[in-house]
C-alpha cells in the first residue's frame, strides 16, 4: 500500500503522508500544506479556479489525485512573486483591472502562465481568449484579463526581439 508521496512545491521538496487515496492535489495544497491561494470553485473541472502548474503544464488540481502524482514538480500562485516583487502577470492583472472580487484570479494567473509556456497564442487576442476559456470569471473581468495576458505576451515578444537583435 502506497501511503506517502514526495512533491516539489514552489521549489521546496515536501514528503507527504497520504493515508486516504481520495485526496486531490487541490485538497492536499489547501488542507495539508496550507497553500490556500489555489481556490476551490466548482471542484468538478468546470471553472478553472484550481489551476496550477504540474511539471510546467496547467491542469485542474481538483481532478488530479495526489497519490497519482508522486515526484511531480508543482507551482502554485504562492510561487510566483519574488519577495515583494510581483510576477509580471500579477502586476499586469492589477494594471489592467483583470479582476473584481479576486476569487478566480489565482487560477486565471496560473492559467495565463501555462498559456504563455505553451507558446500557441502569441499576441492574438482571439487565441488568448480561446486559450483562457477554461477559467470562468463571474465578475466578468474578461476584457481586463485578455489585456493583461496580451500585455505580458507583448513584453516577452519585445524582449525576445531585443535579444535576437
Amino acid at each position: 500500500m502506497i501511503n506517502s508521496i514526495s512533491l516539489t512545491v514552489n521549489g521546496v521538496r515536501r514528503d507527504i503522508a497520504l493515508p486516504d487515496p481520495r485526496v486531490t492535489l487541490l485538497d492536499l495544497l489547501r488542507e495539508q500544506l496550507d497553500l490556500t491561494g489555489t481556490k476551490k470553485g466548482c471542484d468538478r473541472g468546470q471553472c478553472g479556479a484550481c489551476t496550477i502548474l504540474v511539471n510546467g503544464r496547467r491542469i485542474n488540481s481538483c481532478l488530479a489525485l495526489a497519490i497519482s502524482h508522486n515526484g511531480a514538480d508543482i507551482t502554485t500562485i504562492e510561487g510566483l512573486a519574488q519577495g515583494e516583487k510581483l510576477h509580471p502577470l500579477q502586476a499586469a492583472f492589477i494594471e489592467h483591472d483583470g479582476f473584481q472580487c479576486g476569487f478566480c484570479t489565482p487560477g486565471q494567473i496560473m492559467s495565463a502562465l501555462g498559456l504563455i509556456n505553451e507558446g500557441q497564442a502569441g499576441c492574438d487576442p482571439e487565441r488568448i481568449r480561446e486559450g483562457m476559456s477554461g477559467n470562468l470569471c463571474r465578475c466578468s473581468a474578461y476584457a481586463g484579463i485578455t489585456e493583461a495576458v496580451l500585455d505580458v505576451q507583448r513584453t516577452l515578444a519585445a524582449e525576445k526581439e531585443r535579444r535576437v537583435a
Binding site: 478553472g48 491542469i59 481532478l63 505553451e118 486559450g131 477554461g134
Partner: peptide
Amino acid sequence: GASAQLRNA
C-alpha cells in the same frame, strides 16, 4: 474539446 487545462491532462 474541453479546456486547455483538461487537454493537458
